[in-house]
Each structure stands twice: as C-alpha cells, then as structure tokens.
C-alpha cells in the first residue's frame, strides 16, 4: 500500500473507530440485557451497567437436563450446526462445477436467471406443497428435510458468487496447467479454486449464515429437539407468556458465536491462501 499522510491516517482510524462502535454498541446492549435481572430491565432511568450482574441464564443454557431450556438450546445448536454445514456442503458440491461451467462455458446464463426466479417466490407459497412432499417421504421433523430445502436456497447464491469469482481468474493459468498435463478436475481443484479462494471463502460463509438464519421453513417442518434449529428454539423462548428477554439475549449472544468463530478461522486461512496464491503481486 501507498504511504498515507498523517491526516489520512487520522481519518482512517476515526472511521474504523466509528465502525467498530456502531457494530458493537447494539451487541453490547444485547449482552447487558442478558446479564440483567428482569426487574432491572424495566428500571427507569435505564441502568447501563447492571448493579448485580446475573449470569444464571448462561449457566441454565448449559445444563443438559430433561425439559430444561439448556437441553432445548444445546440440541438446537447441534441441529443448526449440522444442518448448515451439510446444506453448505451439498450446495458447494453442486455449486462449484455449476459456477465453473457458467464462467468457462458462457452462453447459459439464462439458466441461472431461471433458477433465481424460483428464489424470488415468497417462501410462504412453497411451504405447504413441500410439507406434503416431506410428510409423504416421512421426513418431517428431520434434519434431512431442512438440508434439502436449504440447499435450494443456497445454490443460486453460491453458484453466482463463485461464478463471479472464477471470472476473475485469468484463463491463461488454467491453460498453463493444461499444457502441464492436468485434467479438467485437477485444474479446477488445484489451480482455479485456490486462486478464487477469496470468493470461495465468502461463498462458504455466506451459505453457512443463510442456513443458520432461516426461520419459517424450520418452524413448520420441525417439532422437537431432534430437528428444531436455533431460530425456532429462540422463537420458543420468546413465546412463554412471561417472556424473559434476558434469556433471549443470552441465546442471541451464544448463537452468534459459532459463525463468528468460523468466520475468524475462514478469514485466517483465506489470508494465508491469498498470500500463497500464484498470481497475487
């Protein structure tokens, strides 16, 4: 990077500070709510820092007892993780070759737009027919049903993001690999994908979070801890007639941790991948 003037540096650090603050402030408040007692949350004027921090909700969420909120939460965490990972995996397996095809053998973009149109349909219109299909297959209340549905949600995203990533990879290096005798799949896996690592990383993160977030399908297709995902469990926690907003906040804080951790490691490996990449100057 070019040298910055001191003024520019001040500007950069000021902007970064504002950015960090705007991101952290609401989450910080979420955390504060999670350690405040119900009574303190309705205290006026508002307490920015709770007088008696109360971590009992976190403890409750980690006790695995029959009928406890911890049990619901931990199972939901497990289901969410496995559903998002599996859906992302399937979406990649199908999306990488598709994206490669769109990028290297142009002329079929209309197909991608066609796939996108299915994605524009409001989910509420598709949810009942799919319910019947899953019921007939005996797949209601299973992670499999969610993996199948999410996979169709993720595919257009993943395919398109990867296509635009592959577009940025110079065709010359692929040709060089070809001349060295590499087959098509080897070229794709050992040459193109590593160079497009940044796009791949974004696509993976994107897919994981999209699946992590989905609520409405999961709400209708799951019925107990065997398949309920985190958003559904959160909906359940919010539902009790006496809503404990502190508990929901605690769940929210914990629910955001796995994606953040995955994102952190993904980024580290991405940066490593980038510096190892063959074309970066």
């Amino acid at each position: 990077m070019m040298e910055r003037t001191p003024l520019a540096s001040i500007f950069v650090y000021g902007a970064v500070a504002a950015l960090v603050l705007s991101i952290l402030a609401p989450v910080f408040w979420l955390f504060i709510m999670s350690i405040s007692s119900s009574r303190e949350l309705t205290e006026l004027p508002l307490h920015w820092i709770p007088q008696e921090p109360d971590f009992s909700r976190y403890i409750r969420l980690f006790t695995l007892q029959e009928g406890s909120s911890g049990r619901e939460f931990l199972y939901a965490m497990r289901n969410s993780l496995s559903v998002s990972l599996m859906a992302t995996g399937v979406a990649l397996v199908a999306g990488v070759p598709a994206a490669y095809s769109f990028s290297r053998y142009p002329g079929r973009m209309a197909l991608l737009y066609g796939v996108l149109v299915t994605y524009m349909m409001p989910p509420v219109a598709l949810i009942l027919p799919l319910y019947m299909v899953f019921s007939w297959l005996g797949l209601l209340n299973s992670q499999t049903a969610l993996v199948i549905v999410y996979c169709t949600i993720l595919l257009p995203f993943v395919t398109w993001l990867l296509k635009s990533g592959f577009d940025g990879v110079p065709i010359e290096i692929e040709q060089a690999a070809q001349i060295d005798g590499a087959g098509l799949f080897q070229t794709l896996f050992y040459v193109t994908l590593p160079v497009a690592a940044a796009a791949l990383g974004t696509a993976v993160l994107f897919a994981l979070l999209l699946a992590w977030d989905e609520f409405f399908y999961a709400l209708l297709y799951t019925s107990d801890i065997r398949a309920k995902t985190l958003p559904v469990a959160i909906g359940d926690f919010a539902a009790g007639r006496a809503t404990d907003y502190g508990l929901i906040s605690a769940v929210g804080v914990l629910a955001s941790l796995p994606p953040v951790l995955i994102g952190f490691f993904l980024q580290k490996s991405l940066i490593a991948g980038l510096s190892a990449g063959s074309v970066k100057g």
Binding site: L140, N141, T144, I148
Partner: peptide
C-alpha cells in the same frame, strides 16, 4: 422422486416422522 430424495437419507439415521407408532 422418492429414490432421489431417499439418497439424501443415507447419512441420516435419525429420521423420525411425527406419526410413527
């Protein structure tokens, strides 16, 4: 259709429909 969707199940042992008695 059933076969194709069924393939997705191979990895999933814990499939339970709400009505199974």
């Amino acid at each position: 259709l059933k076969l194709i969707l069924g393939l997705g199940l191979l990895t999933q042992a814990s499939v339970i429909s709400i009505g199974s008695a």
